[in-house]
Amino acid sequence: MDTQSYLPLQPGVGMEENFLSLDDILLSHERLPIRTECSFPRLGYLEKSTDAQDIPEGTKMELPLWLSKGLYEKKRRVLSVELPKVYREGWRTVFNADPNVVDLHKMGPYYYGLGSQMLHFDSPENPEIAQTLLQTFIGRFRRNMDSSQNAYNEDTSALVERLDCLEKALFTSGQSGLNGFQSWEKGRASQLTASSLVLNYRKRKMADVPP
């Protein structure tokens, strides 16, 4: 049983982000390809490729998710968001064919989270994206379950390197179930051990304490 000194907040996964989740904060920095629908005066420094003072209408550039989400509006067209490669038709076919062969860590690493966030931008392909996300998760579930419930006392880095961040969290919870049972079966659960909080606790020196 591993006890942590803090409880990490789970990512929101769906359309709603979890405001306090570290994963979702990192996710909001993913860059999206966009196209400006009006000119942005005096913001030329955001676009590194030109020295112009303004960003003219119709420029293709990349903006982080949080900014695109804030600027995107249905009524006043400020910018239009294009789908990242992995959510487009071509890759969707790959995911539908066999989700197990895809390296989601390279594709993502927030494949599910970003995919759900893409649903904020009204694209005609939204229903298919949502469907593919769900099918991918289901398709990869068995493999993830088996590897997390069987890998006892071995190096798991090869198993988790192709997993999305969400799947990695699931893998860890699967491992905690397995490790708990195994250590009970070996009789190690009945031995008292020092809490990790105590082990990591170091006495503060007087010099470190701010006055």
Partner: peptide
């Protein structure tokens, strides 16, 4: 997770 992906 699946519930959230389904509600999408």
């Amino acid at each position: 997770c699946m519930y959230k992906l389904r509600s999408n």
